[in-house]
């Protein structure tokens, strides 16, 4: 400060300052730099991955341009590639999975957060979360050996008998195909949606619940008219997280979806997905352009899931922060 102008004070001030700095501080600083480095590592890996994939996809990007997204070709012999059947397969199976999983997951979340007796909540909640911890290849195996035969022999013939006149249940019931893919996905994203939704519901302030109850609402009215409106955005976030997981899921889907790049209305017909085709064909991709096209599929998947996850996090975070009015 004004050391030069006031030498008399200088010694007075410096002594205590010297006593506070020095020893101990070094450890703190090393610790801070080290942890900051680790934290930065995650960001770096993400950025490096995006960059690397972009560079590897460049030949394909140059060759096909936007047509890559709309073309249905996938011909390694002629070196002509298009992503549409895979995008379709990924999007269709994920959205169908979401439609199947959402009501069940939401019901589970409401039960766990609002209705279940206290002694049930924890064990059941943990069990639901455990579903998310099962390796996806196990789901795939179960899909192959248990679910597909069941679909082929019981469910699909029945559906065809009743709804065969619609375009959705045409063709030979094979078990494997779009329907199997979306059901396995539904089971896999269920715990994600259920447990995140439950956490979102629990973040709704208790006073909102009591306010509704004190007005004479039943528990159901309380949930429907007070709690759910508060949690709406966060639940949307949970749904998007689930969707993100469904879009990127590889193993289980590859094992049951049929792996044929068809675009069909029928749930019985086999399909393919972005993740499955990469997993299936990466090892045998011979040509440079072939590999590049596969990488571009990966880039599409990467971009979409990243954006969806960011959106989901923002929505969830905003509910956890509390209702907008509570901080005025």
């Amino acid at each position: 400060m004004d050391e030069a102008g006031n030498p008399g004070r200088e010694t007075h001030q410096k002594e205590p300052l010297a006593a506070f700095s020095g020893g101990g501080n070094l450890g703190d600083q090393v610790f801070r730099v080290l942890t900051a480095f680790f934290a930065a590592l995650a960001v770096l890996v993400l950025a490096a991955m995006a960059l690397q994939m972009f560079r590897a996809a460049l030949p394909s990007l140059k060759q096909f341009g936007w047509k890559f997204l709309s073309s249905t070709d996938w011909d390694p012999v002629l070196d002509s590639y298009g992503a549409l059947p895979y995008i379709f397969g990924t999007v269709a199976s994920s959205i169908l999975a979401l439609l199947v999983a959402l009501p069940v997951a939401l019901g589970t979340a409401i039960y766990l957060a609002e209705l279940a007796p206290l002694w049930v909540r924890r064990p059941l909640g943990i069990l639901v979360e455990l579903l998310a911890a099962i390796p996806s290849v196990i789901y795939g195996l179960w899909g192959i050996f248990v679910m597909s035969p069941w679909l082929r022999d019981s469910v699909q013939p029945l559906l065809q008998k009743i709804f065969g006149w619609t375009p959705f249940f045409k063709g030979v019931p094979r078990g494997f195909g779009m329907m199997a893919g979306c059901l396995v996905l539904a089971i896999m994203i269920l715990p994600t949606i259920a447990s995140v939704s439950r956490d979102v519901l629990l973040a709704v302030p208790n006073s909102i619940r009591e306010g509704a109850l004190a007005l004479g609402a039943t528990r159901w009215e309380m949930v429907r008219k007070a709690v759910l409106p508060c949690a709406k955005n966060g639940i949307l976030g949970a749904v998007i997280l689930g969707l993100g997981r469904a879009l990127g899921e590889t193993m289980a889907v590859t094992m049951v979806i049929g792996n044929r790049p068809d675009i069909s209305w029928s749930l019985f017909s086999p399909g393919h997905s972005l993740a499955s085709v990469i997993a299936n064909e990466y090892a045998e991709a011979s040509g440079d352009l072939y590999l590049s096209a596969l990488t571009e599929l990966g880039l599409i998947l990467f971009g979409v899931t990243l954006l969806l996850n960011i959106l989901a996090r923002v929505l969830i975070w905003r509910v956890a922060r509390g209702p907008a009015g509570a901080r005025n």
């Binding site: 006073s207 909102i208 007070a226 508060c230 907008a324 009015g325 509570a326």
Partner: peptide
């Protein structure tokens, strides 16, 4: 009943 923190519904 009226509560400590105003708790209008959103």
């Amino acid at each position: 009943m009226v509560f400590q923190r105003p708790n209008p519904l959103p």
